[in-house]
Nucleic acid binder design. Structure first.
Lengths: 190, 190
DNA sequence: GCCGTTTGCCTAAGCCTTGTAGGCGCTGCA
DNA sequence: TGCAGCGCCTACAAGGCTTAGGCAAACGGC
């Protein structure tokens, strides 16, 4: 019998791809076993549970997304950095909807603390360095940026903008411009 | 044998309450049957499937939330209306996390078109009447408001703000103020 | 009040997914 | 070449979804 060469890492990658194809919540141990043409029980030597598998995919997606964002941010500042940051998220969600959904999985605190989520927070703060905000405004701004970008991507992916004949790309650009203006104004008055 | 008095509507309400208690994705036909002390198959006379049940709960939550928002908006305009609108969403999500999650369920286009989601869109536009924006800026602004509020509530509910010692209520107020300023400024320059 | 119809919930059964326990053969190393 | 351990297997239990078909309570007409 030919061995399938299962690994936690290979299962995680395949799970991420499967998520992009059929949706993150359709990723099951059974479906993954079928992909590898292997019996379901065999997977349990590599992942502890269905929950464990999903957590691994989430961590993988978080790290991959953080890499993309970091690359997009390199050498940029101010409005440029803001737009690059925003676009990195939006494009990732478009390209990998299942992985993006996975990255939104709720993690328990210690897992989250050890995840690439920390890098995401750092990078968001890094963008704001270009706007010279002091605390607590900086934290407010971090939360606002996170909310807008996640909210927009989430609504757009869910088809929430399909019923108005205005190009989502235009709205996206408008929002980034608005946020840039807002942050510059805030910096000036704080 | 005493009849349990099952109805699609009663099942939907009970499902909504169950969602608030254990999470929307933990709402199953089986769990609901246990609540009514009835066999699982009995529910299938009232709802077509598990998916149908979830859709009904989603529609119920959307309508309830729209009612809350409408009530909050009554007699308000401008910044006042913006804050009331935002708070209605945030408080609903805090009070009924399961129902809020249900309201985010992706509906097929015709179901969505017949849902209270339409009222949500109308009310968001109504708020912007106080800012005198012309198209397409108005649509951009609608999308931005939807993104911020949904994004914030979503991140806050998911515990995303737990690791920074800044009161989320303060950030929320800051964001509403910022959006108000932003919209007023946009109106002035458009 | 009686009877037929409708309604409401039931039993039974099949299929899918998750998860555990234990077995057997292939692989790699001595 | 022998054998230890790894990698995948079979078997099984529990729980969720769904359909088919049955029986009895409720209801409406007479």
């Amino acid at each position: 019998m030919v061995r399938a060469g299962l690994t936690a890492e290979r299962l995680t990658r395949a799970g991420a791809e499967l998520a992009d194809e059929v949706g993150f919540d359709q990723v099951t141990v059974s479906a993954l076993a079928r992909q590898f043409d292997v019996k379901v029980a065999s997977l349990y030597s590599h992942v502890k549970s269905s929950q464990d598998l999903k957590t691994r995919i989430a961590l993988f997606a978080l790290a991959e997304l953080a890499d993309r964002v970091a690359e997009a941010l390199a050498g940029r500042a101010g409005r440029d950095a803001l737009a690059a940051f925003a676009n990195a998220y939006r494009y990732y969600a478009k390209e990998h909807p299942g992985r993006y959904a996975a990255a939104r999985l709720r993690l328990d605190p210690e897992t989250a603390a050890a995840s690439a989520g920390v890098r995401h927070a750092q990078m968001t703060r890094a963008i704001l360095r270009g706007y010279d905000l002091s605390e607590p405004d900086q934290t407010h701004a971090v939360r606002m940026l996170g909310s807008v970008f996640h909210g927009y991507v989430s609504l757009e992916t869910a088809g929430g903008f399909d019923h108005t004949p205005v190009d989502p790309q235009q709205s996206w650009a408008w929002i980034i411009d608005s946020l840039d203006a807002l942050l510059r104004h805030q910096a000036a008055t704080s």
